[in-house]
């Protein structure tokens, strides 16, 4: 977040490398999420422990059960609690209206058809792109002090945490001078994603690789074993989805076009808040 003043009320907010890396990240996020859901569909159940067959039932499962009439019913099983999620999870309706067994629906997966081999190609290629992009981001952001200056909360940020929570709940956003800097909840959210969730999801991905398990035999047991790692990988993916939802929501309520423009051209208008966008 560089704040060269161009003309009154307009600041240069995002540098070119940050903008490029942001949009590369957007592409990677969607490809990884959707190809990941296609991979999940090949075995739509999550277990805890070292193996899937250890005498304990899955903690999460999408299944299809036949009803008395012969129709298939989509069932989401969370910790033994079953929910009918026909048409969305467990079953999908084909064009002719017939229910077929399928974990996540076609519009959430990449490729849209159930195609494990192709989903893996997408997932692993974009995983590389994502990791390389992330490393570039970290290097750049530490060197330009973007992390230290804009994300690590300063004393005054910690002091404003109560007010910031209240403001967020009331969808009240910063204006003028305060709009130039990230607020404390925003800082903490970015730090959590960058330094906890993303490293964790990558590590849990590695934990599923049989070859990488041999790097240091037993390291996967730190999280309870390979199947626990798979479950954590899945949960963190949805935490990231939650982050993206909140992120996009905040982008929309704090001036959609102004925010999008700042991530494309770099320029962000402080005045625009006054126009009640």
């Amino acid at each position: 977040m560089v704040t060269h003043i161009q003309k009154p009320g307009v600041i240069y907010r995002h540098t070119l490398p940050i903008r490029i890396m942001h949009w590369v990240n957007v592409i990677c996020f969607f490809v990884l999420l959707m190809s990941g859901l296609n991979i999940f569909n090949a075995h739509p159940a999550l277990n805890l422990g070292k193996s899937s067959y250890n005498g304990r039932p899955p903690v999460f499962e999408l299944t299809a059960e036949a009803t008395n009439s012969g129709e298939l019913k989509g069932i989401t099983n969370i910790l033994g609690h079953k929910f009918d999620t026909s048409g969305l999870l467990g079953t999908t309706y084909t064009a002719s209206g017939k229910a077929v067994a399928r974990g996540f629906p076609y519009w959430m997966t990449l490729p849209s058809a159930q195609w494990l081999a192709m989903a893996r190609h997408w997932h692993f290629f974009f995983a590389w792109l994502f990791v390389v992009n992330g490393c570039c981001y970290l290097l750049y952001s530490f060197m330009t002090r973007h992390i230290q200056r804009d994300m690590v909360p300063a004393k005054r940020d910690w002091a404003s945490i109560g007010q910031s929570i209240k403001d967020h709940i009331r969808f009240k956003h910063a204006k003028d001078e305060e709009a130039k800097r990230y607020n404390v909840l925003q800082r903490l959210a970015y730090l959590t994603v960058i330094f906890i969730l993303l490293p964790l999801i990558i590590l849990m991905g590695w934990a599923m690789s049989p070859f990488l398990n041999s790097l240091l035999p037993g390291w996967v047991d730190i999280v309870g074993g390979r199947q626990s790692a798979r479950t954590i990988h899945f949960i963190v993916a949805w935490l990231l989805v939650a982050f993206v939802f909140i992120h996009v929501f905040e982008v929309m309520i704090t001036g959609l076009w102004n925010n999008i423009r700042s991530m494309i051209t770099g320029y962000y208008s402080i005045d625009e808040h006054k126009e009640g966008n």
């Binding site: 192709m118 190609h121 990488l212 398990n213």
Partner: peptide, 27 residues
Amino acid sequence: TEVLSSGESLSKHAHHLIANRKSMAQE
């Protein structure tokens, strides 16, 4: 598909770079 598949050899080489070819699977 060929572009996507290039990730496979990248992964293989990276794996063999960081782990010994004789590294043992967990028992």
